[in-house]
Amino acid sequence: MRLTTAISQDMRFQFRHGFYYVYAILSVMYIVVLRFLPDEMVHSALTLILFTDICTLGFFFIGAIILLERGQNITESLFVTPLRLSEYLLSKSISFLILSTLSALIVLVGAAIPVQNFLWFIWGLILSSVIYTLFGIVFATKAKHVNDYFVRALGMGLFISLPLLGHLGLFDTPLFYLFPTKSTLILLDVIGNAYSLTAKLYAAISLLLWTLVFAYLAYYRFEKHVRHPA
């Protein structure tokens, strides 16, 4: 009950602040772009769109949301109710996951993109969305305003996005497999390109482990800097 209440409120909060309108418009724009691209470029472009925006939108917005909630003193009133911190973090992650998934599916269907390995893709989309929201929370806990959040988060965000260079064919190294983003890129790309079962399994398990790592970090940082700040 507490978790569903929190998720429902987070989704309504995102709706009231226009997130759903913005992603409805963006999704249509992506569909138009993908429909005009040559067939051989569509899957690569789709992976890029999902990776840089739809799948990682939680990272871009969670900082502002947490700062807004802290600014309106909502977090302190939430944590004098029986709501657990784990439920609060889960709610934030799931609400962005729903927006990411809806937007991704609309783009896939609207652009009429042929799909293979759908379950692997969805696994990658879900875990990646959760990871990047949690990643944002890790940095949002100490930020004082939105610019501060991006200064703190963007450097690390760009660093862990280095495997994108490999996806774009600019630079590649096996070390990229140590990054969560490499696994994200593999599982977002499986709908259009063939990957070995080993690669898919590696990516799926690695994302699960990264989710646990970022869940712990987000919980620890939130507990220390926001919920019990001394």
Binding site: Q9, R16, Q72, N73, I74, S77, V80, P82
Partner: peptide
């Protein structure tokens, strides 16, 4: 613990768009 205590902080803390 929080089932039985109520807290009103000095600064009102509510969702302003609701």
């Amino acid at each position: 613990f929080y089932e039985h205590i109520g807290v009103a902080f000095e600064t009102p803390n509510l969702y302003s768009k609701f």
